[in-house]
Each structure stands twice: as C-alpha cells, then as structure tokens.
Simulated scan of single mutants.
Amino acid sequence: MLHQLASIPRRRTYLLVLLLLAFHPGAKPQTFQNFIRQLTLASASAEKDTLVARYVLRHGAPVVESTSVHFIYRGSGKTAAVPSEINGWHPFSSPMVHAEGTNFFWRTDTLPIDARIEYKLWIDSNWILDPLNPRRAKGGFGENSELRMSGYRESTADREDPKTERGAIDTLSIESAILHRRYPVYVYTPSGYTEGMLLPSIYVTDGGDYLTLGRMDIILNSLIGEKRIQPLVAVLVDPRTDPKSPSSNQRMIDYAASDAFLDFLENEVTPFIQKNYRVSPNRRDRLIMGASMGGLISTYAVLRREGFFANSAAQSPAYWQADSAVIKLLDRIKQTGGAFYIQTGTIHDTQVEARLVSRLLREKGGKVTFEEFHEGHNWTNWRSKLDRILTHFFPYP
C-alpha cells in the first residue's frame, strides 16, 4: 500500500487522503470553504469531478453553515444564477461562480439564522427548480425551491390529523348588482355546527387561494379541535369570476381601495350570510383579512367602514398600491378605534410600508399588533402565520 501511494504524484496523494478522511465514519462535515480550496488545488478533471460528486452526495443542497448559505448546481450549462426573494427574483444580480474544469457552479449569500426563502435556478436563461433540493413550496405562480435556515421553525397547525373533526365547506355563487358580476364564495362552518349561539365570522379575500394554498380549513379544524380558538364561520370570497381561469381574476381592481367592493361585502354578501348562517351581527365579532393586495383592502375596510368592520388582519400588505390610498387616508382621518394585525416578511417583502402604516395607526389610536419574520412574499409564509392571527382575535374562552 505504501509503495502504491509513493507512486502517486504528491498532489493526488493529498487529495486521496482528504477524500478518505471526509468519508470516515467519525469525520466531521467538511466546510464549504475547505471544499472550494480542495477543488481549486485539484488539477485533473477526474479529480475535480470526484470531489464535487462526493461533496454533493454528503451535503446535499443548498448547504447551510450558520448564517451562510451556499447554493450549488451540478449539470450542463454555461451560465447559472440564483434568482430568489433575496434579490427580488432578478437573475442578473445573482450570478453563480463556475468552478473551472467542472460542471459545478456555486454562490454564497448571508441570511438570518431563522430565515426561510424561496428560489429557483437560472441556467442558460432557463428557470428551473433546484434538482439537488427536494424541498418545494407551492405559490400563486407555481412551485419554487425552498431554503430553510437552521433556526427556522415551521407551524404545525396546517398538518391534517385524521382524528380531528372536520368542518364543512359550502360552495356558493353570489350575483352582485354592485359589481355587475357573479362571485364565487366558500363558507366554512365548524364541526358540530347546529342551532344555538351566534358565531363570530371572518371575511377572507382571495378565498380560493386561502383554501388551496393557505389550507385555512385544515388550520381552522385543527385550532378549533384543540380548543385554541372558538368555533367560527369563515366567508372566503374569491376574486375570480371563474375559479378555473386566472385571467378572470379581479383582485387588482377590487382590492385597490375599492369602495364598490366594500359595498358588495356590506350590502350583498353579509346580508346573505346573516340570513343563511348563524353569525353574530356585532361588528366586533367580524374580522376581514387578506394577503398582499388583500391585506391592503382589509386595512382600508376598517378605516372606511369602522361601523361595519372593527378588526382587520393584513399579511404582507401592499400599501404602496392604489396610489398609497391607506397611507393617504391615515393622513386625513383624526382617529380610529379599530384593531389591526399586520404581519410582514423582511426579505424583499412589504416591511417598509407595513412599519409606516403600523406607526400611523397607533398615532391615530388604533390597536395594532405588528410582527416581522425573516421570510418573503409567499403563501408558505402566510399559511404558517395564520394560527397567530386566529388565536389573537378568537381565543378559546
């Protein structure tokens, strides 16, 4: 064996020893910096390929080291980048380094230790999911690859327990004389919904997405079943005149500080709900909520219709939209007695405007709960925070 090692050039002997040590049962995980150093020292393509193959097999992707994350790609392509929530999904601002003599690319970024983001790879101008990362996150524009830093902790409220009693969902359609179109509406009623006391209600914008991507019915089943919140009725209003047709989505019109949409909720949807379901008519038992543009209209609804909506929850609210209507309205009004729950991510999300609106609401007398999370503008973020909103407004007595 010694004779065989002696016949191998010194550089190759060094690399062979490193590889043997790396895969020894008691070996510590190799740092990314050391791996890149070894890759640079290797001269032959076969040696480089072996180093890359074994590193990828051992570490997977992305590679997280404390607050550093190393995105890696191994495959065909001349150029590679990592468009993500870190860089606003701009591939030209996130190029990967190509390791010479290999088909290996890498890029290092820094994130808070409890962060979670979504990303894709951009290979020769083609958008792809990370083939080395099995984690996926579904969103309004399809799937993305998902990165979780070591300190990230996910909510378990959306995990379906077969032992939990399920509520029911009625699929309705309401013809609006105000908006001149028919609206899909989904109504959730809790398990055990029978004649008796009147229940609080939630009016949810982007209702179809909150069911499919937000898993709201499963979260409600879980929280009600565990007696973390009181039973309630959820009215999920969908902005698509045809739920199967994305082009029929009216959210950019209806949620852009539209008083006509608020008229629709107050004068057409709510009377129908109160006639056909056991919901409390008290405005303090009524919450309106939504994400992004839905967060904008939810805050706007309480400011404009405080006699009807007393509570709102906004997730990553797009307050800069509609010509900053919410901010301008807050400049005009003297005070508000509403309760506002505002959540935002800190990674290319709505943090700046959300902080500003939260401060203005407090100055006007509003009861504000404000939270920031090291995440981006996506449905996994919003879904995982729903339990915090629901337990805040509807705690179990």
Rank of each mutant, 00 (worst) to 15 (best):
P271K: 10
V82P: 09
E154Y: 04
P317A: 07
E165T: 03
G376W: 08
Q274M: 08
D170K: 12
L361C: 06
N267A: 01
D242F: 00
Y255I: 03
R54I: 01
P9T: 02
P200M: 06
G101V: 03
D349F: 07
P395K: 13
G26S: 12
R182P: 00
Y119A: 05
N282E: 11
K364G: 06
S66P: 00
Q343P: 02
A339E: 14
W89K: 03
M197A: 14
P184H: 11
V357F: 08
R286P: 03
W382K: 07
D209C: 01
A53G: 08
L360H: 12
M289F: 08
Y277I: 01
G376N: 14
Y188Q: 11
T79N: 07
L390G: 07
L356M: 14
S248I: 01
T13W: 05
G75M: 06
L330S: 06
Y193F: 12
S191G: 10
G26I: 00
G167H: 06
G196F: 08
L198V: 00
S93K: 05
M149H: 07
R240P: 01
A53T: 15
A339F: 10
V352F: 14
G337Y: 15
P281R: 05
L329S: 09
T31H: 13
R240N: 11
P134Y: 13
G225I: 00
P395I: 04
I202N: 07
I342S: 03
L265V: 02
T156G: 02
S93C: 02
T79C: 01
T299K: 03
P29C: 10
L16Y: 09
I113R: 13
L265G: 04
F105C: 03
R12L: 04
F32G: 14
S150V: 01
T350H: 06
A322W: 13
R383W: 10
S245Q: 13
Y183W: 15
S201N: 09
I218F: 10
Y341V: 03
D349T: 02
E118M: 05
W106Y: 15
E371T: 05
Q343K: 07
G60L: 05
V302C: 09
R362E: 15
V63P: 11
T67Y: 00
R153I: 10
Y255H: 11
W320N: 04
V279F: 08
S258D: 15
D323Y: 08
H24S: 15
W379H: 03
S94H: 03
S173W: 11
S258Q: 12
Y341K: 05
